[in-house]
Design a protein around this nucleic acid. Structure first.
Lengths: 345, 345
DNA sequence: TTGTAGGCGTTATCAT
DNA sequence: ATGATAACGCCTACAA
């Protein structure tokens, strides 16, 4: 004779219905806060749910309702604090909308982004948010095909195809460059992240360039250094630039992390800042104001973006109206890392 | 007469079966790489899939197979780069196992962690990973009830209830303190993150304390400063400690970010490091080696943990054997921020 | 090796 | 306001 473990079967919605003496439809209604439910019914059902310790099954609910209760976020990387800050606030705010967060990274490879999007859609999400404006055309087609709410963020291009929440990357970059020009700098260098597939980096570079062009100040090719994201990479960039003759008196960096690398390397090389060298960043990471000297930079509204994306996506998911395009201010933060160039220049 | 938009119905598995002239079961088998499928059948099905552009529905698959294709990660916050580094590598590695990542943060509130876990389980996940060893008892009960593979990480407690992948937080902390003692320091202070619900912070503090105790060196209460995570908080801690009389000659920080704050504030205050003040961190963030002076710290194997968690969880999900407990080395990284105390002390 | 058919646990459309 | 009951789209014993 064989004894079988009779696995105590999980409580199902049907069990609750039976225990409460109502139909499964009624239980479902109560659970989902549907209208037209009598108080008496609600109480009966809630009591039974409580007594049986019933917990709905998310997968069944998703299949039947065509609502997963989660959105997908596609980010280049979480290794950049500015993105993890945004994701952190996004996830927190999504909770208010009773929504979970599915994450995928693609490390600046747009083909990987497309593939990750495909996977997320197949997996099941109620909406998607992507970073920036650079994407494979197939990504848009896919989002349309699934007829899902989606959003791009971190940029301010107006594009009928892409609802967006972000900020202008070019304008503040331009203002940083203008700030240096006003201080009297003429030999200005740029350290940028790779611009392929990264519209934010391109926009910032464009802002830098436009300001110099308009002022009639040259930006020769050897004063533009492209390096991967990272402190070490920034440090390396400084070495290259300081090897030039004449050396630049100011360096515009595409993001704070590169600027940190530049500053730390400069400090090690005994270059005084801002007297001998001005440096700017972009992002305003928490460290920026604690650098010595404090870093002049642009405050990227990461937390604000995360919250707004959560709200906007939740609105769209519930078929409520939402702005097509939100542009947030990204203010300049002038600190001690920028000053007039040495007078002998 | 009413014209109805006949929404072009999505291609379903049944359509593929019909097109290929086979059964739905066969299509399913091919799609899932089941054994015992003839080459001919596979080809027919794959051709039909291709031709119709069929994409399986994740929610239906999840309901029927009881496999979601995603795991959940519960982390205190993504605002700490050491966690986002771990999550980044976890997510990357999960891709190799064809698994997605659901994220939830709880900002060091264990009740929120429990709630988030409840939500994720209800949502549907194939496994879960939590940070550290401090959790509400109900969390364990929940995981057991759902009979899901789970793991805790970032610590090295041996606990039959909690499979784990992590490192010893106390031992390296102790060695840092011993290092300072060997250099001759006797007035040593500690800056720690709040230890409530944070076993890692507690273990590190214990390591510091044990070393000093064993050496007969006092650690008076006013030389232990507890502050929230953050550069600014570290800077504040330095102010407090330097207000003591006599001031400490060395400061053990619970993590790198606090150490950065301490160092930057010290630098601003004109305190020379390491001549007048030694400082240590814990984590070895990328910045650590670029500080001036470079920060002595402990390398937390964040990337390694992420990868191992992915592999271990994937193994358990597929009912393959997996180690109950993996302890990774977290090596000391001695750099320039520690040296002998001033001779007049 | 392949096909048949009965779930998987809810939601939602009808009636009533 | 409530109850039957048919989807939802796929998986998987079981049978052939």
């Amino acid at each position: 004779m064989v004894f079988r473990m009779t696995a105590k079967k999980r409580t199902l919605l049907g069990d609750v219905a039976r225990a409460a003496g109502v139909s499964t439809a009624s239980v479902s209604r109560v659970l989902n806060g549907a209208p037209h439910v009598s108080e008496r019914l609600r109480e009966k059902v809630e009591a039974a749910v409580e007594r049986l310790g019933y917990v709905p099954d998310g997968t069944a609910r998703a299949l039947a309702s065509r609502h997963v209760g989660a959105i997908g976020a596609l980010v280049p990387t979480l290794d950049n604090p500015i993105f993890s800050a945004m994701i952190d606030s996004l996830e927190r705010r999504l909770k208010h909308h009773d929504c979970r967060l599915l994450i995928a990274t693609y490390h600046y490879n747009l083909d990987d982004e497309l593939e990750a999007l495909r996977t997320l859609l197949q997996q099941g999400i109620d909406g998607a948010v992507l970073i920036g404006h650079d994407h494979r055309p197939a990504a848009l087609a896919l989002l349309r095909q699934y007829a899902l709410p989606y959003l791009s963020c971190w940029h301010s291009e107006e594009d009928p195809d892409w609802p967006s929440i972000g900020f202008d990357n070019a304008a503040p970059a331009r203002r940083l460059a203008e700030h240096l020009l006003e201080l009297g700098h003429r030999r200005i260098a740029v350290v940028t992240a790779p611009t392929v597939g990264n519209d934010r980096a391109r926009a910032r570079l464009r802002g830098f360039r436009d300001a110099l062009d308009d002022a009639g100040v040259a930006l020769p090719i050897d004063r533009i250094v492209t390096v991967d994201y990272g402190i070490e990479e920034g440090a390396y960039a400084l070495q290259l630039l300081m090897g030039l003759d004449p050396a630049p008196t100011a360096i515009l960096c595409g993001n704070d992390t590169l600027a940190f690398g530049v500053m730390l390397a400069a400090q090690k090389a005994g270059i005084r800042m801002p007297e001998e060298l001005s440096v700017t960043g972009f992002d305003d990471l928490p460290q920026a104001r604690f650098m010595v000297p404090p870093l002049t930079t642009v405050a990227a509204p990461a937390g604000d973006i995360g919250r707004r994306v959560a709200d906007a996506l939740a609105a769209r998911i519930h078929r409520q109206p939402a702005l097509h395009c939100q542009v947030i201010e990204a203010p300049l933060v002038l600190r001690g890392s920028t000053a007039a160039p040495p007078s002998d220049q």
